[in-house]
């Protein structure tokens, strides 16, 4: 993980209403220097609105937006030291690659030779040497993407905003660009704020993931925290696949669900508090029925490429299990869990 400096952007109690619909319901968020932060959530959760507020295209209905400690909520976008990579790139179709990248510097009336030098450097950073005179409308999606990144970064912003920049690319190219974006971020050493609805993208690129739903932040944490210690059912459900089971916390490090008590590592809940437990499908180990409390019958097995997805039906429910071993449908099996693999979360109010 990159070392983070001081807090550069601070959102304090930001709300946003469109007509009578509230799309952001009180967002508090600190964004640090040199951080790769991802806003993750389903469409309509408000993640893009946050980005547009930081960029200056929307004004918050309430709350403060601090940039280096100064409220910039009312500063127009062209006076902010922030640049954006737009979802569909928004390259200027009437300019070639060079002039697209040079646009911001030309506006600032930077010396031509300095512009030339910076544009060349940026084009080679994104791997587009020799593309200067190309017509941007004739480039491939991945190349347009790179031009958009170069066009934003050449202005040396303090913060780069990326609005689902990879969503228009095919799967393989998207993987490639994920790695490349991360590399670029480390090279230029500035804050990236990345918006996506793709959880895998978020987990593989970010220092910090902010999971959002329904205009609220659900959880802020490192990818590992978000995956292993989801704070509530929404996060657990949205990030990866999971079995979510209602239960009770007997005491610290002891949880009860489906009629059995299990050792776990979670603390700080009230005695007998109603909680929900997340079990990741790949964490459940299949053993002989005599060796386990939880016993059930395999009712389906689907080959998924790397693993098989099994559904095991017990007296209480169906468990989803990922395993690389072959098991026959109809077989009775037992299931055991490591205490580290039982993730206890607060029960969500519905």
């Amino acid at each position: 993980m990159a070392d983070m400096g001081d807090c550069i952007i601070e959102l304090r109690g930001i709300t946003k209403n469109f007509d009578d619909q509230q799309v952001l319901r009180g967002i508090d968020l600190n964004i640090y220097e040199n951080q790769f932060l991802t806003l993750l959530g389903p469409s309509g959760c408000g993640k893009t609105t946050i980005l547009r507020i930081i960029a200056g295209f929307e004004e918050p209905s309430k709350g403060e937006l601090l940039f280096n400690g100064i409220d910039i909520a009312k500063v127009p976008p062209y006076k902010r030291e922030i640049n954006t990579v737009f979802q569909k790139y928004a390259l200027f179709p009437f300019l070639n690659v060079y002039d697209n990248v040079a646009f911001g510097l030309n506006i600032k009336k930077v010396d031509k030779s300095v512009i030339h030098q910076k544009v060349q450097k940026m084009l080679s950073l994104v791997g587009l040497d020799g593309f200067e005179k190309r017509d941007v409308t004739l480039l491939s999606g991945g190349q347009q993407q790179r031009v958009a990144i170069a066009r934003a970064l050449v202005n040396e912003p303090k913060v780069l905003l990326l609005d689902e920049p990879l969503s228009a690319l095919d799967a393989k190219l998207r993987k490639e660009m994920q790695g490349e974006l991360k590399k670029i971020q480390q090279e230029v050493g500035i804050t990236f704020i990345f918006v996506t609805h793709d959880q895998e993208e978020a987990l593989s690129m970010s220092d910090t993931v902010v999971v959002m739903n329904d205009g609220k932040i659900q959880q802020i944490g490192t990818p590992v925290d978000i995956y292993n210690e989801p704070e509530n059912r929404f996060v657990a459900d949205f990030i990866g696949e999971s079995n979510i089971i209602e239960g009770n916390m007997i005491r610290d490090c002891l949880v009860k669900f489906d009629g059995y008590e299990f050792e776990c590592v979670d603390k700080g809940f009230k005695e007998n508090e109603e909680i929900e437990v997340v079990l990741r499908p790949e964490d459940i180990e299949i053993v002989a029925p005599e060796q386990a409390n939880l016993v059930g019958e395999i009712i389906s097995s689907v080959f998924k490429g790397v693993h098989y997805e099994l559904i095991v039906k017990t007296a209480q429910r169906e468990y989803k299990i990922h395993t690389t071993d072959i098991h026959e449908v109809g077989k009775k099996v037992g299931m055991v869990l490591d205490k580290e693999d039982i993730h206890v979360m607060y029960k969500m109010d519905y």
């Binding site: 960029a55 200056g56 295209f57 127009p76 976008p77 062209y78 922030i82 640049n83 954006t84 737009f86 979802q87 569909k88 928004a90 390259l91 200027f92 179709p93 009437f94 646009f103 911001g104 506006i107 600032k108 066009r151 934003a152 202005n155």
Partner: peptide, 29 residues
């Protein structure tokens, strides 16, 4: 005209008037 082009221009530091002259007008020429 795609509004995100105007947003992109302002994002890159162009004032509304510069955006009109340098981006909107060339697109609707």
């Amino acid at each position: 005209f795609d509004d995100s082009l105007a947003n992109a221009a302002m994002d890159l530091g162009a004032s509304p008037f510069q955006t009109l002259i340098k981006v909107i007008v060339p697109c609707i020429k």
